[in-house]
Design a protein around this nucleic acid. Sequence first.
DNA 1: CTAATTGCAAAAGCTTTGCAGCGCA
DNA 2: TGCGCTGCAAAGCTTTTGCAATTAG
Lengths: 133, 133
Amino acid sequence: MAESNELRKAGLKVTLPRVKIMQILESSEPRHMSAEDVYKTLIDAGEDVGLATVYRVLTQFEAAGLVIRHNFDGGHAVFELDDGEHHDHIVCVDTGEVFEFFDEKIEKRQKKIAEDMGFELVDHSLVLYVKQK
Amino acid sequence: MAESNELRKAGLKVTLPRVKIMQILESSEPRHMSAEDVYKTLIDAGEDVGLATVYRVLTQFEAAGLVIRHNFDGGHAVFELDDGEHHDHIVCVDTGEVFEFFDEKIEKRQKKIAEDMGFELVDHSLVLYVKQK
DNA sequence: CTAATTGCAAAAGCTTTGCAGCGCA
DNA sequence: TGCGCTGCAAAGCTTTTGCAATTAG
Protein backbone atom coordinates (compact mmCIF):
# COMPACT_ATOMS: atom_id res chain seq x y z
CA MET A 1 0.00 0.00 0.00
CA ALA A 2 1.08 3.49 -0.87
CA GLU A 3 0.94 4.84 2.67
CA SER A 4 3.51 2.32 3.90
CA ASN A 5 6.09 3.49 1.45
CA GLU A 6 5.60 7.12 2.28
CA LEU A 7 6.03 6.31 5.95
CA ARG A 8 9.12 4.21 5.42
CA LYS A 9 10.63 6.85 3.21
CA ALA A 10 10.12 9.30 6.05
CA GLY A 11 11.95 6.97 8.40
CA LEU A 12 8.84 6.18 10.40
CA LYS A 13 7.79 2.70 11.38
CA VAL A 14 4.64 1.51 9.69
CA THR A 15 2.20 1.39 12.54
CA LEU A 16 -1.55 1.19 12.60
CA PRO A 17 -2.15 4.72 13.92
CA ARG A 18 0.11 6.23 11.28
CA VAL A 19 -1.41 4.32 8.41
CA LYS A 20 -4.93 5.09 9.55
CA ILE A 21 -4.19 8.77 9.99
CA MET A 22 -2.54 8.93 6.59
CA GLN A 23 -5.59 7.28 5.02
CA ILE A 24 -7.92 9.70 6.72
CA LEU A 25 -5.92 12.65 5.45
CA GLU A 26 -5.87 11.22 1.94
CA SER A 27 -9.57 10.62 1.76
CA SER A 28 -10.82 13.48 3.86
CA GLU A 29 -13.32 15.97 2.57
CA PRO A 30 -12.82 18.77 3.55
CA ARG A 31 -9.08 18.47 3.08
CA HIS A 32 -8.31 20.61 6.11
CA MET A 33 -8.67 18.88 9.44
CA SER A 34 -7.78 19.71 13.01
CA ALA A 35 -6.15 17.12 15.26
CA GLU A 36 -9.51 16.81 16.97
CA ASP A 37 -11.22 16.14 13.62
CA VAL A 38 -8.78 13.36 12.84
CA TYR A 39 -9.20 11.93 16.32
CA LYS A 40 -12.98 11.89 16.07
CA THR A 41 -12.84 10.23 12.67
CA LEU A 42 -10.59 7.56 14.11
CA ILE A 43 -12.89 6.94 17.06
CA ASP A 44 -15.96 6.84 14.84
CA ALA A 45 -14.19 4.22 12.76
CA GLY A 46 -13.74 2.13 15.88
CA GLU A 47 -9.99 2.63 16.12
CA ASP A 48 -8.52 2.82 19.58
CA VAL A 49 -6.04 5.68 19.17
CA GLY A 50 -5.25 8.37 21.68
CA LEU A 51 -5.49 12.08 20.96
CA ALA A 52 -1.86 12.49 22.02
CA THR A 53 -0.84 10.03 19.36
CA VAL A 54 -2.75 11.97 16.75
CA TYR A 55 -0.83 15.10 17.70
CA ARG A 56 2.47 13.24 17.71
CA VAL A 57 1.83 11.61 14.36
CA LEU A 58 0.70 14.83 12.73
CA THR A 59 3.76 16.63 14.07
CA GLN A 60 5.99 13.87 12.71
CA PHE A 61 4.23 14.03 9.36
CA GLU A 62 4.80 17.75 9.29
CA ALA A 63 8.51 17.33 10.06
CA ALA A 64 8.69 14.74 7.30
CA GLY A 65 7.07 17.12 4.85
CA LEU A 66 4.02 14.93 4.37
CA VAL A 67 1.53 17.41 5.75
CA ILE A 68 1.33 21.15 6.23
CA ARG A 69 0.14 22.77 9.42
CA HIS A 70 -1.86 25.98 9.19
CA ASN A 71 -2.67 28.39 11.98
CA PHE A 72 -5.83 30.02 10.76
CA ASP A 73 -7.65 32.21 13.25
CA GLY A 74 -9.45 30.35 15.95
CA GLY A 75 -7.01 28.83 18.34
CA HIS A 76 -6.52 25.41 16.77
CA ALA A 77 -4.22 24.30 13.98
CA VAL A 78 -5.45 22.51 10.87
CA PHE A 79 -3.53 20.01 8.78
CA GLU A 80 -3.64 19.09 5.13
CA LEU A 81 -1.74 16.65 2.98
CA ASP A 82 1.17 18.26 1.17
CA ASP A 83 0.64 17.38 -2.47
CA GLY A 84 3.61 19.46 -3.51
CA GLU A 85 1.40 22.07 -5.14
CA HIS A 86 1.56 25.25 -3.15
CA HIS A 87 -1.68 27.14 -2.70
CA ASP A 88 -3.18 29.77 -0.44
CA HIS A 89 -6.51 29.74 1.33
CA ILE A 90 -9.88 31.41 1.37
CA VAL A 91 -11.92 30.98 4.54
CA CYS A 92 -15.62 31.81 4.55
CA VAL A 93 -16.40 33.60 7.79
CA ASP A 94 -20.06 32.52 7.57
CA THR A 95 -19.65 28.81 7.05
CA GLY A 96 -16.06 28.11 8.01
CA GLU A 97 -15.49 26.44 4.64
CA VAL A 98 -11.94 26.49 3.31
CA PHE A 99 -11.13 26.92 -0.36
CA GLU A 100 -7.77 26.90 -2.09
CA PHE A 101 -6.35 29.15 -4.73
CA PHE A 102 -3.07 29.94 -6.39
CA ASP A 103 -2.18 33.21 -8.03
CA GLU A 104 1.06 33.55 -9.91
CA LYS A 105 1.03 37.33 -9.78
CA ILE A 106 0.74 37.46 -6.02
CA GLU A 107 3.45 34.83 -5.63
CA LYS A 108 5.88 36.78 -7.76
CA ARG A 109 5.05 40.03 -6.10
CA GLN A 110 5.72 38.58 -2.65
CA LYS A 111 9.11 37.33 -3.74
CA LYS A 112 9.99 40.71 -5.15
CA ILE A 113 8.91 42.55 -2.01
CA ALA A 114 11.04 40.33 0.21
CA GLU A 115 14.03 40.70 -2.07
CA ASP A 116 13.66 44.43 -2.42
CA MET A 117 13.98 44.58 1.34
CA GLY A 118 17.13 42.50 1.20
CA PHE A 119 15.62 39.25 2.45
CA GLU A 120 15.09 35.81 1.07
CA LEU A 121 11.50 34.63 1.13
CA VAL A 122 11.32 31.26 2.86
CA ASP A 123 7.60 30.91 3.34
CA HIS A 124 4.39 32.85 3.42
CA SER A 125 0.88 32.64 4.69
CA LEU A 126 -2.00 34.25 2.86
CA VAL A 127 -5.58 33.80 3.95
CA LEU A 128 -8.52 35.68 2.50
CA TYR A 129 -11.51 35.91 4.81
CA VAL A 130 -14.68 36.26 2.76
CA LYS A 131 -18.44 36.17 3.13
CA GLN A 132 -21.25 35.35 0.78
CA LYS A 133 -22.63 38.33 -1.06
CA MET B 1 -4.60 63.75 27.22
CA ALA B 2 -5.24 62.09 23.92
CA GLU B 3 -5.71 58.58 25.32
CA SER B 4 -8.62 59.63 27.50
CA ASN B 5 -10.59 60.87 24.56
CA GLU B 6 -10.02 57.74 22.55
CA LEU B 7 -11.20 55.66 25.47
CA ARG B 8 -14.27 57.78 26.10
CA LYS B 9 -15.12 57.69 22.42
CA ALA B 10 -14.97 53.90 22.60
CA GLY B 11 -17.41 53.93 25.51
CA LEU B 12 -14.80 52.77 27.99
CA LYS B 13 -14.22 54.32 31.35
CA VAL B 14 -10.91 56.07 31.70
CA THR B 15 -9.06 53.86 34.15
CA LEU B 16 -5.41 53.67 34.98
CA PRO B 17 -4.81 50.24 33.43
CA ARG B 18 -6.43 51.32 30.18
CA VAL B 19 -4.55 54.57 29.92
CA LYS B 20 -1.24 52.90 30.75
CA ILE B 21 -1.77 50.13 28.23
CA MET B 22 -2.73 52.63 25.57
CA GLN B 23 0.42 54.63 26.27
CA ILE B 24 2.57 51.53 26.07
CA LEU B 25 1.08 50.61 22.72
CA GLU B 26 1.57 54.14 21.44
CA SER B 27 5.20 54.35 22.43
CA SER B 28 6.25 50.76 21.95
CA GLU B 29 9.11 49.77 19.76
CA PRO B 30 8.64 47.21 18.28
CA ARG B 31 5.06 48.09 17.49
CA HIS B 32 3.89 44.51 17.82
CA MET B 33 3.48 43.24 21.35
CA SER B 34 2.01 40.17 22.95
CA ALA B 35 -0.20 40.43 26.02
CA GLU B 36 2.74 39.12 28.01
CA ASP B 37 4.99 41.85 26.58
CA VAL B 38 2.54 44.52 27.62
CA TYR B 39 2.17 42.95 31.05
CA LYS B 40 5.92 42.84 31.60
CA THR B 41 6.30 46.43 30.53
CA LEU B 42 3.62 47.41 33.01
CA ILE B 43 5.28 45.51 35.85
CA ASP B 44 8.69 46.94 35.00
CA ALA B 45 7.14 50.38 35.19
CA GLY B 46 5.97 49.58 38.70
CA GLU B 47 2.29 49.41 37.79
CA ASP B 48 0.19 46.91 39.70
CA VAL B 49 -1.94 45.48 36.91
CA GLY B 50 -2.99 41.88 36.48
CA LEU B 51 -2.32 39.86 33.35
CA ALA B 52 -6.02 39.09 33.10
CA THR B 53 -6.71 42.79 32.94
CA VAL B 54 -4.21 43.18 30.13
CA TYR B 55 -6.04 40.53 28.15
CA ARG B 56 -9.41 42.06 28.91
CA VAL B 57 -8.28 45.55 27.97
CA LEU B 58 -6.61 44.43 24.76
CA THR B 59 -9.73 42.51 23.79
CA GLN B 60 -11.86 45.58 24.49
CA PHE B 61 -9.50 47.74 22.47
CA GLU B 62 -9.76 45.29 19.63
CA ALA B 63 -13.57 45.34 19.76
CA ALA B 64 -13.42 49.13 19.77
CA GLY B 65 -11.20 49.13 16.71
CA LEU B 66 -8.30 50.72 18.55
CA VAL B 67 -5.92 47.80 18.11
CA ILE B 68 -5.53 44.88 15.74
CA ARG B 69 -4.83 41.35 16.90
CA HIS B 70 -2.59 39.15 14.77
CA ASN B 71 -2.12 35.42 15.02
CA PHE B 72 1.33 34.92 13.61
CA ASP B 73 2.85 31.48 14.02
CA GLY B 74 3.98 30.72 17.53
CA GLY B 75 1.02 30.16 19.78
CA HIS B 76 0.48 33.65 21.10
CA ALA B 77 -1.30 36.64 19.61
CA VAL B 78 0.36 40.01 19.07
CA PHE B 79 -1.33 43.39 19.15
CA GLU B 80 -0.60 46.65 17.41
CA LEU B 81 -2.27 50.03 17.42
CA ASP B 82 -4.65 50.51 14.51
CA ASP B 83 -3.52 53.68 12.82
CA GLY B 84 -6.08 53.28 10.08
CA GLU B 85 -3.46 52.46 7.49
CA HIS B 86 -3.74 48.83 6.47
CA HIS B 87 -0.52 46.93 6.01
CA ASP B 88 0.76 43.40 5.87
CA HIS B 89 3.71 41.87 7.68
CA ILE B 90 7.13 40.42 7.12
CA VAL B 91 8.52 38.28 9.90
CA CYS B 92 12.21 37.39 9.98
CA VAL B 93 12.53 33.76 11.00
CA ASP B 94 16.05 34.36 12.29
CA THR B 95 15.47 37.34 14.54
CA GLY B 96 11.72 37.41 15.04
CA GLU B 97 11.65 41.03 13.90
CA VAL B 98 8.43 42.25 12.35
CA PHE B 99 8.31 44.67 9.42
CA GLU B 100 5.35 46.18 7.69
CA PHE B 101 4.58 46.65 4.04
CA PHE B 102 1.73 47.57 1.76
CA ASP B 103 1.41 46.58 -1.87
CA GLU B 104 -1.40 47.94 -3.95
CA LYS B 105 -1.12 45.25 -6.61
CA ILE B 106 -1.48 42.44 -4.11
CA GLU B 107 -4.40 44.18 -2.44
CA LYS B 108 -6.27 44.55 -5.72
CA ARG B 109 -5.51 41.04 -6.81
CA GLN B 110 -6.90 39.63 -3.57
CA LYS B 111 -10.12 41.51 -4.00
CA LYS B 112 -10.47 40.27 -7.55
CA ILE B 113 -9.82 36.66 -6.56
CA ALA B 114 -12.49 36.75 -3.89
CA GLU B 115 -14.98 38.36 -6.21
CA ASP B 116 -14.26 36.00 -9.07
CA MET B 117 -15.24 33.21 -6.72
CA GLY B 118 -18.47 34.99 -5.89
CA PHE B 119 -17.47 36.23 -2.45
CA GLU B 120 -16.96 39.53 -0.79
CA LEU B 121 -13.56 40.04 0.75
CA VAL B 122 -13.97 41.11 4.36
CA ASP B 123 -10.42 40.72 5.61
CA HIS B 124 -7.13 39.09 4.84
CA SER B 125 -3.93 38.03 6.50
CA LEU B 126 -0.64 38.03 4.64
CA VAL B 127 2.63 37.26 6.34
CA LEU B 128 5.92 36.79 4.55
CA TYR B 129 8.45 34.71 6.47
CA VAL B 130 11.95 35.69 5.41
CA LYS B 131 15.55 35.19 6.40
CA GLN B 132 18.69 37.22 5.90
CA LYS B 133 20.56 36.38 2.75
C1' DC C 1 -24.40 55.88 44.68
C1' DT C 2 -24.03 52.11 41.25
C1' DA C 3 -22.57 50.04 37.47
C1' DA C 4 -18.25 49.27 35.40
C1' DT C 5 -13.72 47.61 36.28
C1' DT C 6 -10.03 45.22 38.51
C1' DG C 7 -6.92 41.53 40.73
C1' DC C 8 -6.61 37.09 42.02
C1' DA C 9 -7.14 32.51 41.38
C1' DA C 10 -9.28 29.00 39.14
C1' DA C 11 -10.72 27.09 34.77
C1' DA C 12 -10.66 26.32 29.94
C1' DG C 13 -8.86 24.85 25.41
C1' DC C 14 -5.22 23.23 22.60
C1' DT C 15 -1.00 20.84 22.56
C1' DT C 16 3.05 18.52 24.57
C1' DT C 17 5.42 15.36 27.62
C1' DG C 18 6.62 11.45 31.09
C1' DC C 19 6.30 6.87 31.63
C1' DA C 20 5.32 1.96 31.58
C1' DG C 21 3.83 -1.36 28.45
C1' DC C 22 3.24 -2.94 23.58
C1' DG C 23 4.61 -4.01 18.86
C1' DC C 24 7.16 -3.56 14.51
C1' DA C 25 11.36 -5.02 12.22
C1' DT D 1 15.19 -9.15 21.11
C1' DG D 2 15.45 -4.10 21.13
C1' DC D 3 14.23 0.24 20.19
C1' DG D 4 10.49 2.77 18.51
C1' DC D 5 5.75 3.68 19.29
C1' DT D 6 1.43 4.04 21.87
C1' DG D 7 -2.09 5.16 25.42
C1' DC D 8 -3.02 7.37 29.44
C1' DA D 9 -2.69 10.86 32.53
C1' DA D 10 -0.52 14.79 33.92
C1' DA D 11 1.57 19.08 32.83
C1' DG D 12 2.26 23.43 29.91
C1' DC D 13 0.85 27.65 27.73
C1' DT D 14 -1.94 31.14 26.31
C1' DT D 15 -6.26 33.08 27.16
C1' DT D 16 -10.78 33.42 29.57
C1' DT D 17 -13.92 33.61 33.46
C1' DG D 18 -16.04 33.87 38.38
C1' DC D 19 -16.14 36.66 42.19
C1' DA D 20 -15.54 39.95 45.82
C1' DA D 21 -13.47 44.31 46.36
C1' DT D 22 -12.52 48.80 44.24
C1' DT D 23 -13.33 52.91 41.51
C1' DA D 24 -14.91 56.15 37.86
C1' DG D 25 -18.57 59.32 36.72
